Computed example of a mutant assay.
Amino acid sequence: MTYTLPIETDRLTLRRYVESDYDDLLKLQSNPDVTRFLLYDPKTPEQVKETLASRLADVPMDGPDQALTVAVIQRETGQHVGEVTLFVESFDHQGGEIGFVFHPEFHGRGFAAEAAIELLRLGFEELEMHRIIGRLDAANTGSAKLLKRLGMRQEALFRQNEFLKGEWTDEAVFAMLRDEWIKRS
Rank of each mutant, 00 (worst) to 15 (best):
G123C: 03
R75L: 07
G96A: 09
T69V: 07
E118W: 08
D24H: 14
D10N: 11
S30A: 15
T35I: 09
E128Q: 10
S30E: 09
L5M: 13
A71P: 03
I182R: 03
L52G: 10
A144N: 08
Q154T: 08
R121C: 00
N31C: 10
D92V: 12
R15F: 02
E8T: 15
G151H: 07
D21F: 14
H80Q: 12
D65I: 08
D24C: 11
G78I: 07
M1T: 06
P6T: 11
F163C: 14
D179S: 06
G99N: 11
M61F: 08
F111A: 04
Q74V: 14
L119H: 00
P42W: 08
I182M: 00
P104V: 13
V70E: 00
L147K: 04
D41H: 14
I117Q: 08
P104W: 12
T44P: 13
V18A: 13
D137G: 05
K27H: 13
E105N: 14
G134S: 11
L68H: 02
F100P: 01
L127V: 10
L39E: 10
E118Y: 08
D33G: 06
A115E: 00
S20N: 12
G123M: 04
P60W: 06
L127T: 01
G166M: 04
K165Q: 11
T141H: 14
V101R: 02
E162W: 03
D24P: 05
R184V: 09
S143G: 05
W168Y: 14
E167N: 08
T35C: 13
L177I: 11
V48R: 00
D23N: 13
D41I: 06
I98A: 00
F91G: 01
V84D: 01
A67P: 02
D92P: 09
E162I: 00
V101D: 01
A116I: 07
S20D: 15
E83I: 02
T9L: 04
V70F: 00
T44R: 09
N161Q: 14
L127Y: 01
